[in-house]
């Protein structure tokens, strides 16, 4: 434990600052690195180049631009709900980060049912999206909001079921102990790299990544925001600061779910060869986790900018007839193996 004793308000302040940093740093990093640059390279262009060397300050320029813009609420919109929605979306992402461990002691709240809490919190954002779609008084927004609701509910299930395998294998719902279980584990006696559950739970990992893509409404599952059909769906009427909040919410959620995935399947803040009880891991841990987040979110963006999108009914069919049976089989298999070994 940390040797310094802090008053309650000091702890609270520290946690608030910490959560904000934990949300904004990965979100900013992956927007700048992947959305602006890597994707541009995939399309054989350079991306932003003017703000700062190689456009490295573009993010600040964008934020500055959005903050300056006029705050427009459509005439027929339900103004109060319209204004509330973006905060709900961003707020839920902040809540997800609460449960994620960044080091042996660096954790905002060491919850006993941590993974259960993280997934539950992440799905609250659908309410924000639904409110945004409904309150905008726009047909595209309404269609987008309803699509988002249907989609997020359908993919919540495979997401949770994919996690079940990990939970069974680790024997705990606590994220911290899931990480240590991976660090202490061994593959048939070979313990040098620990036991990242991505190896034993490869099916669960793939299902989780697909469901995560859908949960984040990224292509090929981006029907709620489909620009070419619904003109960015539930975000159509938003501009300026509120759009920025949606934007932060979207990419912070990529970071958050990547963090959950990294914790569950890739060993979280632990890196093979390091001592997972040592105090220095409190500093090194967040960096390792950030690297893993970036790795996973690169896959998210890579897929996003390669594939066309599904249709709404195909998406539902895919979730209910492919992903859920597979993840159920995975759970059964994991249970049998768990009892056998």
């Amino acid at each position: 434990m940390l040797s310094v004793e802090l008053a309650y308000w000091q702890q609270t302040l520290l946690r608030t600052v910490g959560v904000l940093a934990a949300v904004l740093l990965p979100a900013g990093a992956l927007v700048q690195l992947f959305l602006f640059k890597a994707v541009s390279f995939m399309q054989s262009r350079l991306g932003p180049m003017e703000a700062g060397p190689h456009g490295s300050l573009q993010l600040f320029a964008e934020v500055g631009k959005w903050i300056q813009k006029e705050d427009i609420v459509p005439d027929r919109a339900d103004a109060r709900l319209f204004k509330l929605a973006p905060y709900l979306v961003v707020g839920t992402v902040l809540l997800v980060y609460l449960a994620i461990p960044f080091g042996p002691d660096a954790v905002f709240a060491d919850l006993e049912g941590g993974i259960f809490y993280a997934l539950a919190a992440s799905s609250v954002s659908v309410i924000g999206v639904l409110i945004a779609g409904w309150a905008s008084a726009n047909k595209y927004s309404l269609l987008g909001g309803l699509r988002a609701a249907g989609q997020l509910i359908a993919y919540e299930l495979p997401l949770v079921l994919a996690v079940m395998g990990v939970v069974i294998q680790a024997g705990t719902l606590n994220l911290q102990r899931i990480v240590t279980a991976q660090a202490d584990g061994s593959i048939f006696g070979f313990g040098a790299i620990g036991l990242p559950f991505a190896i034993t739970q490869i099916v669960g990992f793939v299902v989780f990544l697909i469901a995560m893509q859908a949960e984040l409404t990224q292509t090929p599952f981006d029907m709620p925001v489909a620009e070419s059909e619904l003109v960015t769906g539930f975000m159509t009427e938003y501009s300026g600061m509120r759009f920025l909040l949606f934007f932060i919410g979207e990419f912070a959620a990529v970071g958050a779910l990547s963090a959950v995935a990294a914790t569950l399947f890739l060993g979280g803040w632990y890196f093979p060869g390091l001592d997972h009880d040592a105090n220095y891991m409190n500093v090194l841990g967040p960096i390792i986790l950030l690297a893993k987040i970036l790795l996973l979110s690169f896959v998210v963006f890579w897929v996003r900018f390669t594939y066309p999108r599904f249709r709404e009914d195909q998406l539902q069919k895919f979730a209910w007839t492919v992903l859920i049976p597979i993840s159920l089989l995975n759970i059964v298999g994991t249970m049998i193996l768990k009892v056998a070994f």
Binding site: F41, S44, R45, L46
Partner: peptide, 25 residues
């Protein structure tokens, strides 16, 4: 395509990313 844009040079210099040369824009 990303590799081609980021590492357009030949030989040892291939390891140095230089997207300003690789991009067509």
């Amino acid at each position: 395509e990303m590799g081609r844009t980021m590492f357009p040079r030949q030989g040892v210099m291939k390891l140095v990313p230089s997207p300003t040369q690789g991009a067509v824009t």
